[in-house]
């Protein structure tokens, strides 16, 4: 049975990806702070436990991420570093540490925010960093391992459900497809990138934003 590792797998996109990969027949190691294989991906010892538990990895999904939003003039260094360490540092170190089988695939969760987003200097930098990591590792690990990223936009989650209704409506109004994504839709795209259907695709960022990056 093929092995998959999904970080941040307890809820949202991570849980949906893990479910989707299980339906595809993967033996999924669900990594999270709060359920499944409990580990902190920013901790080197915890990453070593993940690598040991995973064995030979066929699909790695770097999904674990946090936000600490503030305009640059108000952002604290603690807010900045927390996001960089979780979203970028942990993904890079885990990607380097895993033992991959031939034909393996890494998919990292970037974000449309890598194109720039008000109030998210830390988050957009972390996601831009993931894009850079994707390109470099695609060259470094070819031809054995493919490396790609997906850049979603607004996706239904506990965070969006907690937003004031008018704020959410305004954000959705900026999306040409007229709605936020469901986690399962993003999971489908990740599963496709990880699958043989995308066997000739590496080093790419698929922007799955409902057209928001095009809209005024």
């Amino acid at each position: 049975m093929s092995r998959a590792v999904v970080t941040g797998a307890a809820r949202g996109i991570g849980a949906a990806v893990a479910d989707r990969l299980e339906r595809d027949g993967f033996d999924v190691l669900r990594v999270d702070l709060a359920g499944g294989f409990i580990a902190d991906v920013t901790n080197a010892e915890d990453r070593a436990r993940i690598v040991a538990e995973a064995g030979t990895v066929d699909v790695l999904v770097n999904n674990a991420g946090i936000t600490r939003d503030a305009r640059i003039v108000k952002m604290t260094e603690e807010q900045f570093l927390a996001v960089i360490r979780v979203n970028l540092g942990a993904a890079y170190e885990l990607s380097r540490a895993c033992n991959y089988g031939d034909g393996a695939s890494i998919v990292s969760l970037a974000s449309r925010a890598y194109l720039g987003n008000f109030g998210q200097f830390n988050y957009s930098a972390s996601k831009g960093g993931l894009v850079g990591m994707t390109r470099a590792l695609a060259l470094e690990l070819a031809p054995r391992v493919r490396v790609n990223a997906i850049a979603p936009s607004l996706t239904a989650s506990e965070m969006t459900r907690a937003m004031p209704e008018k704020v959410l409506e305004k954000m959705i109004a900026s999306i040409p497809l007229g709605r936020q994504a469901e986690p399962e839709e993003i999971a489908e795209t990740i599963a496709a990138l990880a699958s043989p259907a995308a066997a000739y695709v590496t080093g790419q960022v698929l922007v799955a934003c409902g057209g928001r990056s095009l809209a005024p």
């Binding site: 194109l115 831009g128 850079g132 470099a136 695609a138 060259l139 470094e140």
Partner: peptide, 21 residues
Amino acid sequence: GQDGAPGAMLANALLSGMRTL
């Protein structure tokens, strides 16, 4: 991404941060 992952991460992080600024 042609000269190693650390440099690629830094350059692209700065580019994205610049766009947010």
